[in-house]
Amino acid sequence: MSRTIEPSSNTPLDSVESIVAGFRERDYVCDRSLATAVFLALRLDRPLLLEGEAGVGKTELAKVLAASLGTRLIRLQCYEGLDVNAAVYEWNYPRQMLEIRLLEARGQADRANAHDIFGPDFLIRRPLLQALEADPDGEPPVLLIDEIDRADEEFEAYLLEILSDFQVTVPEIGTIKAARPPRVILTSNRTREVHDALKRRCLYHWIDYPTAQKEFEIVLARVPDAPEQLAREVVAFVHRLREADLTKVPGIAETLDWAAALLSLGSRELTGEVVDETLGVVLKYEEDIRRIRGDTARSYLQEAGATA
């Protein structure tokens, strides 16, 4: 309970508190429940599935985790049609061809055998294989499987196999097994429901929009040059927007973009005109912008001014 937190440059992530502190050091503000999920994923050696609206910091968490652990981040971006060749490994056929030609030219073709061209040298390692093959002595890498909902079911089924055994079989070489399983973070935007079998293997956390206070801290951490007053106003306005009936609600990423945009425009505070001019940074749908721009924005500004 009464452990002291020692914020050093390389905090071991061995308690919930140290994760909160370690992430904070890298300008990632997270609440205790998220930190608990990360902590348990690390300790129980389980993949962590993060879901949440776009722009709440799911991908960022993996980056910060890798930095905090002092290890490599290996990222696999998912898309429909993603297959083993793009995700795990592929043979470098052109190079193999060249090798055959070279051997022929040197007159050694008769002495060469299959091992010469189906060896590790000719293997192109894609992210999943990279994650398994990492240095056995060092800290295992963080494997980020980003936007798993964009991959199709076939790939999800394959992933299931990898995540349970952390091994891959390349027929020509044999089975490659991770000496220490990588830390796996999966993210999903919920454009479709991830299959239950995959979820069962993961710990789960839904990242909510932060409270105004927390988001204010995030803005200050990420846009350090922003004056406090501006940060407070921006956060209050965005929070008001999230309650409004919009097609696409702005995420934290939008808040940060907006604060940075206002800063580079030299605004010290939010005014009606400034909001109208820069609303496109926060709202990405034309109908949303049309609804908010003008009088609505001004009334939100007043409300935001009252709370900020």
């Binding site: 205790r32 429940s33 998220l34 608990t36 999920a37 348990l40 994923a41 962590l48 879901e51 429901e193 239950d196 979820k199 069962r200 710990l203 789960y204 956390h205 839904w206």
Partner: peptide, 10 residues
């Protein structure tokens, strides 16, 4: 939070 990470799946 610990229980949530373990039990909740959606």
């Amino acid at each position: 939070a610990a229980g949530e990470a373990v039990f909740v799946r959606r």
